[in-house]
Amino acid sequence: MSAKTIRGVAYVLGDNIDTDQILTAEYLKINPSSPEGYAQLASLAMCGLPEGSLPFIDPQTGKSPYSIVIGGQNFGCGSSREHAVVTLGAAGVRAVIAQSYARIFFRNCVSTGQLLPVVSNARLCDQVKTGDVVEIVVDEQVVRCESGVADAPIEPVGELANIVEAGGLFAYARAVGKIPAREAAEV
């Protein structure tokens, strides 16, 4: 599954999903650069959603069965936490589709390479249901849903798909020769 086509099961939210809902502040001390920390963050994704929300993480695997999150307006608002984006990526999310994003959340998606932020002017959070299979076809600029919801156009993603697929800004810059590749550490 390349960044040019992302297919998966959707988890649907509404407007103003903030970084405290994605990962509460008490867990910001977890270091995502260690394998243990990354796994721990995965198991905590969406831990700040209101009580009674559909579980986002499968307790057996510590990951999410949902690889696409659909929101409304102002997704990722609140604190400028890179941890929120990393947490969703660690949990297995590949993309977020929303009508609009908090600027810093969008930027963190790109810089970390964890998630592809997709903008759709259609209010998909009112049409798609959690559990629906959704496909984002970047080259065709469309979101398709197997449940019969009409195809929804998305804004052009451009080079963002390549940056996310490469693993973030620095990995992409190395891949295209904008910065030197890292040399293997001598043992």
Rank of each mutant, 00 (worst) to 15 (best):
A98H: 02
A84C: 08
P55H: 09
R94I: 09
G71C: 11
Y66P: 00
N108M: 12
V93L: 08
C145P: 04
D132T: 14
P117V: 09
S100C: 10
G71D: 06
A90L: 00
I57L: 10
P117E: 12
G92V: 07
T87L: 00
Q114E: 15
A91W: 02
V93S: 00
H83D: 00
V85R: 10
C109T: 08
R107K: 13
N108I: 07
G89C: 12
V128G: 03
K63V: 12
N121W: 08
S53H: 14
V96F: 03
R123I: 10
R123T: 08
L88S: 05
R103Q: 15
L88D: 02
G72E: 05
N121H: 15
E140L: 13
V96H: 07
V128Q: 03
C125G: 04
T130Q: 14
D58Q: 09
F106Y: 15
S53E: 10
F75G: 00
R94G: 06
R94C: 11
I57H: 00
Y66D: 01
A90Q: 02
I136A: 02
R94E: 13
L115E: 06
Q127Y: 11
S79V: 00
N121L: 14
C109G: 12
S67H: 03
P59M: 12
V133K: 12
V133T: 15
L115T: 01
P117C: 11
I136F: 02
S53F: 14
V128S: 04
Q99K: 07
D132H: 13
E140Y: 09
C77I: 15
V110Q: 13
Y101M: 11
S64Y: 10
C125Y: 10
I70K: 02
S53Y: 15
